[in-house]
Computed example of a mutant assay.
Amino acid sequence: MAMSEDPVREWILTEGKATQITKSTPVGGGCINLATRYDTDVGPFFVKTNRRVDESMFEGEALGLKLMYETYTIRVPKPFKVGSLPRGGSYIIMEFIEFGAARSGQPALGRKLAEMHKAGKSEKGFGFDVDNTIGSTPQVNTWTSDWIQFYAEHRLGYQLKLARDQFGDSSIYEKGQRLAKNLAPLFENVVIEPCLLHGDLWSGNVTYDKNGEPVILDPACYYGHNEAEFGMSWCAGFGSSFYNSYFEVMPKQPGFENRRDLYMLYHYLNHYNLFGSSYRSSALSIIEDYLRMLKI
C-alpha cells in the first residue's frame, strides 16, 4: 500500500522517526477497536483503528492520555497522533508498553492513582474540553461548576434517558430521576475538587509494565469527584491494600461508604444500555436502596 493511502505507516516513517517497519502484528485491544503492534528500528508503536467512527472518539482518548501522562504520576501510554483513515474510520498511534508481572501490586496502584488525582486539577469546574465515550456510549462532559448537578445531569440523567429511549424503561427512569434530584444529603460536609479521572477503571484497563509498575489504559477521562473513580470497583478487584494506599495520599471523606454505590450506579446503567437486561436489576436495586435511605 502506498504511503499516501496509509497514514499510520506514513506517520511512523516520518514524524515517528522510524526508517523501517519490520512487521505489524494484531494484538488484544478490546471489543471496540482493532489493535496492532508496529515493530520498527526505533522501537514499537501501538495503533488502534476503528472503521466505523470518526476521529473524535480517539481525540477524546488522546487528550485524556496526554493529561494523565503530564501529571507524571501513574504510567499511561503516551499518545502521538490521531487521524482519519482514507476509506473511512480513524486511528490513534501511541507508545507501546511492554507488560510484565504485577510486582508492585495494588498498594502502588492505589498510591499512584491518588497522586494523579491530587496533581490533575481543573479551574474550569467539572467536565472536560471534549465529549468522549464510556465503552461505546457517548459521555457528555459539558463544564459545570457544581458536581452534584454535573453528576445528576450528565452521568445519571444521560444514562436514565438512554434506558427509557432504548428499552421504554419508564420505571427505572422515573425512580432514577427522583434519586438524581435529591443527591445533596449524600455530600454533606464533603469537599469536592475537580480531579482528573481515568473514568473507566476496571481490571481490563489496569496492567503492569516490565518493571512491575502499574499502567492504566483506555480512559474515559473527565474532571470529577475523586470517589467517582471507584465506580467500576465491582469488576476492578480493588482490595483493602489498594484503598489503604490511596487514602494515605487522598484522605477518605465523611460518608464515603454511603456514596460508593451511587458511583457504581452510573456504570451499571451504562452496562444495562450497552449489554441489556442482565444489568437492570443491579441498577434498579441501587436506586431503590437510595430512595429508601434518603426517604424520597
Rank of each mutant, 00 (worst) to 15 (best):
D6V: 07
V8D: 00
R9F: 06
R9G: 06
E10M: 14
G16T: 12
T22R: 10
G28R: 14
L34V: 15
T36G: 00
Y38W: 12
D39M: 01
T40P: 04
G43R: 07
K48A: 02
R51T: 13
R51S: 15
R52W: 12
R52I: 14
V53R: 14
D54A: 11
M57C: 11
M57N: 09
T73G: 11
G88Q: 07
G89C: 08
F96H: 12
I97Q: 05
E98M: 13
A101C: 12
A102W: 08
S104C: 07
L109P: 02
G110P: 00
R111E: 11
L113T: 08
H117E: 02
K121I: 13
E123L: 15
K124N: 11
G125Q: 09
G125M: 06
F126A: 01
F126H: 07
G127N: 08
T137P: 06
W147T: 06
Q149Y: 09
F150Y: 15
A152N: 03
R155C: 04
Y158M: 14
Y158I: 15
Q159D: 04
L160M: 12
K161R: 15
S171F: 12
Y173D: 08
E174D: 15
L183F: 02
E188R: 13
V190D: 05
I192Y: 01
E193A: 14
L197G: 01
L197K: 02
L201T: 11
T207M: 11
Y208R: 02
D209Y: 11
I216R: 04
P219R: 05
A228P: 02
E229A: 01
W234S: 09
A236K: 07
F238Q: 03
S241Y: 07
F242R: 01
M250I: 11
M250G: 00
P254Q: 08
E257C: 06
N258V: 10
R259I: 03
R260K: 08
Y263H: 03
L265I: 02
H267T: 03
H267F: 05
L269E: 03
H271R: 06
Y272Q: 02
N273W: 00
S281T: 13
A283H: 00
L284A: 13
I287T: 04
E288A: 02
Y290E: 04
